[in-house]
Amino acid sequence: MNESGISRDLIRGHIDTIILRVLLEGDNYGYEIMKSITVISKGQYDLKEPSLYTSLKRLEGQGLIESYWGEESQGGRRKYYRITPEGAETYRANLSAWKMARGLIDLLIERQEESS
């Protein structure tokens, strides 16, 4: 576990949904996606570059996001990503499934005090 007590394994299975959530806010490129995730998590989670690009490639292959080259006038060109309508639908479905799973896990893990 890291210093915040959260196992990276608990988050790993949700990286695609986290990226889709960031892209719902608007088109973005890799470094800014990673930075957004750090900010949203209040510094408790840093998505590593290899994981990011593996997820982006998978999401693009599934048609949930699409990429395009930016028109920067300074520095190197950046590859931007945008969420597709299918990606937005998948995000909503994944969020709903997460909420149901979280409720079930809470029931299974949290000890309920018996009332006498």
Score class of each variant (00 low, 15 high):
I37H: 00
Y45L: 09
G63M: 02
S51C: 04
H14S: 06
D9Y: 15
G30S: 14
S67N: 08
R8F: 15
I19E: 08
S55Y: 04
Y80G: 03
S7A: 11
L95N: 04
S41L: 09
Q62G: 01
G87Y: 02
G75L: 15
R12I: 09
N28W: 11
R8M: 13
L108W: 12
E110P: 03
E72A: 14
I83N: 07
Q44E: 06
E66K: 15
L24P: 01
R82M: 05
R82D: 04
R92F: 07
A88P: 05
P85W: 04
R102P: 04
G43W: 08
L47G: 05
S7Q: 08
I18K: 06
T54C: 02
L10F: 11
N94H: 01
T90I: 02
Y68T: 09
R12G: 01
N2P: 00
M34A: 14
E3M: 04
T90L: 03
R92Q: 05
S36G: 07
Y81G: 00
H14T: 09
I109W: 10
R8T: 11
I19Q: 09
Q112W: 15
E71D: 15
R92C: 03
R92S: 04
E32G: 10
E113R: 15
L23H: 00
N28K: 13
S4W: 12
I6F: 08
T84D: 00
G30M: 11
T84L: 03
E66N: 12
I65T: 13
L59R: 11
E60N: 04
E110N: 08
G43M: 06
E49G: 09
W98P: 03
Q44S: 13
S115W: 14
L59K: 06
K48G: 10
N2C: 01
R8C: 12
P85C: 07
L59S: 06
S67I: 01
L52D: 00
I18Y: 01
A93W: 00
T84I: 10
L95H: 02
R111P: 05
L47Y: 09
S36W: 01
K35D: 11
I109P: 02
G5E: 08
R58K: 03
G103K: 15
P50A: 01
H14A: 04
L56T: 03
E3T: 10
R102G: 04
D9I: 13
T17G: 07
H14E: 02
D106S: 09
Y45W: 13
E86W: 03
T17D: 03
E114L: 14
K79F: 12
D46P: 05
G13Y: 03
K35Q: 10
N28H: 05
E60F: 02
I83L: 05
G30N: 08
G87M: 05
L108Y: 13
K35H: 11
K48W: 11
S36K: 11
Q112A: 12
R82V: 06
V39N: 04
Q62L: 00
Y53I: 03
P85E: 09
I37M: 00
E72L: 15
T90H: 02
D46C: 13
E3C: 06
G13S: 06
K48V: 07
Y53G: 00
Y81I: 01
G76W: 15
E66G: 05
G87V: 04
N2L: 02
S96N: 13
R8A: 14
N94E: 03
G26A: 01
L107T: 14
L47A: 06
I109Y: 10
